[in-house]
């Protein structure tokens, strides 16, 4: 008898979770469905629960692939900016985190405290002086302005330090005997061992810059320099006449990320739960 009540409990809870999961996926499903519907109708009605299946059309996607030049410009900008941020921030932050973990040197603790301190200062507070700095350096409306504040990511430094603390130091000594330089030890031996942490940080930094909004909004000025979120946001006008690009375009900003997520789930989880610290 107890088995029966347990089974009822299991299935009712599982059903409850199915409902919760459906609610979580509902907006995404709506986005995908809506991208196959006429934009004029969406503008008039919003997204409806019930609609006429015969209205399903590929028009939004045909339009974006044939007409929407600026969308692909934004896509390219986002790809370049995210790639540069991933490469530079991983390169520099791993160096810093590694040094803080494996070397004994004067000021090491000071540097580490500073890293923790910057983690606590929200970017929004530094935004206006940084904006002024970009104006002074004549970097407004350039990739450099978007990338610069992200080059050394304190969250990544912190993460790499924690990870590097667990690396086997004997390997360093062995490599020194073999005549390897300190730089060779880092790039050829230790960095490859930091692979999993690099993957998690690549995803955190990549997703962060792919979706980043406020800073690019501040420093990018012309349509041809916009990143995807900024460009798409400019289409959110009160007249709602851009839903063709907005919907198919949004789908195509998410699809690559979901594909990556399927393959690298573990690193997404590691990267994003850490990203919470950033806000």
């Amino acid at each position: 008898m107890k088995g029966n009540t347990n089974k009822t409990l299991i299935w009712s809870l599982t059903f409850g979770f199915a409902v919760v999961a459906f609610i979580a996926l509902f907006p995404l499903l709506n986005l995908i469905l809506a991208s196959f519907r006429p934009s004029t109708e969406l503008m008039r009605n919003g997204i409806s629960l019930v609609f006429d299946p015969s209205t399903i059309t590929l028009d939004n996607f045909i339009y974006i692939f044939t007409e929407a030049r600026s969308y692909w410009q934004w896509y390219g900008n986002s790809l370049i900016i995210s790639a540069v941020i991933i490469v530079t921030s991983l390169f520099f932050s791993s160096m810093v985190g590694y040094a803080l973990a494996v070397y004994e040197f004067k000021g090491r603790n000071v540097f580490f405290v500073l890293v923790l301190f910057i983690l606590m200062v929200p970017f929004e507070i530094l935004m206006l002086p940084l904006f002024q700095l970009m104006i002074d350096l004549q970097l407004i409306n350039t990739y450099t302005a978007v990338v610069l504040p992200a080059v050394v990511a304190p969250i990544a430094v912190f993460f790499f330090r924690q990870y590097a603390l667990g690396l086997p130091r004997e390997l360093m000594d062995a490599a020194r005997i073999d005549g390897s330089t300190e730089y060779g030890i880092f790039f050829k031996i230790m960095l490859p061992l930091m692979g999993p942490s690099l993957a998690a940080m690549a995803i955190l930094q990549g997703l962060g810059s792919w979706n980043n909004f406020l800073w690019p909004l501040v420093v990018l000025r012309s349509n041809d320099m916009f990143t995807l979120p900024i460009g798409l946001a400019t289409l959110l006008t009160p007249y709602g006449n851009n839903y063709d690009i907005l919907l198919s375009g949004s789908v195509m900003t998410i699809v690559p990320i979901i594909i990556l997520f399927i393959f690298f789930q573990r690193y997404f989880v590691a990267g994003l739960t850490l990203g919470g610290v950033k806000g």
Binding site: P27, N211, I254, I257, F268
Partner: peptide, 13 residues
């Protein structure tokens, strides 16, 4: 999954 979307895309939906 929702954590993967940008606020702009999610907000538009």
């Amino acid at each position: 999954l929702p954590a993967l979307t940008s606020v702009i895309v999610a907000g538009m939906v």
